[in-house]
């Protein structure tokens, strides 16, 4: 049985421009988007692309992951230390996407 889990999303560094300038959003998604496996970061990224992304999806996703140059943090930890796409989302996780691609 799939239940709903709450995920806290943050978009910054310029990616928020692809989401109607929304910087923070709490979403509810099934705990198993692709049964029987629990929902992973890979599922979440596609879910965001299909449900939240407002424009120019190629600036957010590339293949089945985020575009290189967008940093991802899971509960304030670099997702590269958390298994990246394979990370299994838990209730109340905080996921941050930061673009490094905007001018400095």
């Amino acid at each position: 049985m799939s239940s709903l889990i709450k995920v806290n999303l943050t978009f910054s560094g310029g990616v928020e421009l692809l989401f109607n300038n929304i910087k923070q959003k709490i979403i509810e998604i099934p705990s198993t988007i692709n049964p029987p496996k629990p929902t992973t970061m890979k599922d979440l990224i596609l879910w965001i692309k299909d449900n939240l992304l407002q424009e120019r999806s190629e600036l957010f996703v590339s293949g089945n992951t985020v575009r290189p140059g967008i940093l991802v943090l899971i509960n304030d930890t670099d997702w590269e230390l958390e298994g990246e796409l394979g990370y299994e989302i838990k209730d109340n996780d905080e996921i941050v996407f930061i673009s490094t691609l905007h001018g400095g």
């Binding site: 910054s12 310029g14 940093l71 943090l73 941050v96 930061i98 673009s99 490094t100 001018g103």
Partner: peptide
């Protein structure tokens, strides 16, 4: 590396501006 600059700014909560020209 750019990644570290952005991570540093994030953890230190530095106030910066990011919009495309």
């Amino acid at each position: 590396y750019e990644k570290e600059i952005v991570m540093y700014a994030y953890f230190k909560k530095l106030d910066y501006f990011s919009t495309e020209c």
